[in-house]
């Protein structure tokens, strides 16, 4: 019971401060769940994000469900997911009831102009940190570069490549690259 409560409060806190969607939440997740609580490793978090990308639903929710499952099975998954939406539901309900033009106030616009800068920095920091654990050598660098360029310049491409395809192809590339040579070793530190 205490562990479920801990899961709920941890994710309620994350939900209360995760501005700008699932990706911006990542640095807070590494801080709270990897460093502080030790519930998951950096690599596990990266894996969850990858799977969260190509499965239905909101990414932040998918990641919460994964971690909830890992800690306490299905009840953990439910508690973590309800936790992450708890504060947003209250805030949005209040706004919908009383402050419909909330987003039009100059103060709100200014504050979020500042917060967006911070989100940029947080995402950059998170990428730098996870990079060290996952981009090891030329093949992984190439996967990173190709996926990054295809995603950033997707607007200029004749066909937009879905993240789902990118993740699946990269997983397949991983099997081709590492499937035989490293089988049975699994010695990468996480």
């Amino acid at each position: 019971m205490r562990e479920l409560w801990e899961l709920f409060t941890a994710f309620a806190r994350l939900g209360a401060v995760s501005f700008g969607g699932g990706y911006a939440m990542l640095p807070l997740l590494t801080r709270e769940l990897v460093d502080r609580r030790g519930w998951v490793t950096d690599n596990e978090l990266t894996d969850y994000f990858a799977i969260g990308q190509c499965t239905p639903g909101v990414i932040a929710l998918n990641v919460a469900t994964f971690i909830g499952n890992k800690r306490k099975g299905i009840p953990g998954a439910v508690v973590a997911s309800v936790g992450i939406v708890f504060v947003p539901v209250i805030i949005i309900t209040v706004i919908a009831a009383f402050l419909r033009n909330f987003a039009d106030y100059a103060v709100v616009k200014d504050a979020f102009g500042g917060i967006r800068v911070c989100v940029c920095v947080l995402v950059v920091n998170a990428v730098l940190r996870l990079w060290k654990k996952a981009v090891l050598g030329l093949p992984t660098f190439l996967i990173f570069a190709v996926v990054f360029l295809l995603s950033v310049f997707s607007g200029f491409l004749p066909v937009s490549v879905s993240p789902v395809i990118l993740v699946l192809v990269s997983g397949f590339a991983g099997i081709l690259l590492y499937g035989k040579s490293e089988s049975g070793k699994g010695g990468d530190a996480s």
């Binding site: 700008g20 969607g21 990706y23 911006a24 990542l26 690599n43 990266t46 894996d47 994000f49 990858a50 990308q53 967006r116 989100v119 940029c120 995402v123 950059v124 998170a126 990428v127 996870l130 990079w131 654990k133 996952a134 981009v135 093949p139 992984t140 660098f141 996967i143 990173f144 570069a145 190709v146 996926v147 990054f148 995603s151 950033v152 993240p163 990118l166 993740v167 192809v169 990269s170 997983g171 397949f172 590339a173 991983g174 099997i175 081709l176 690259l177 590492y178 499937g179 490293e182 089988s183 049975g184 699994g186 990468d188």
Partner: peptide
């Protein structure tokens, strides 16, 4: 623990980080 699944994740992780970085670029 299945070596092929582990291998798939080794390829998938840099892709996951690239997607996060690309989302960062769109905020930037």
């Amino acid at each position: 623990g299945n070596p092929y699944v582990e291998a798939a994740f080794k390829g998938l992780r840099p892709a996951s980080i690239a997607l996060i970085a690309a989302a960062g670029i769109s905020v930037i």
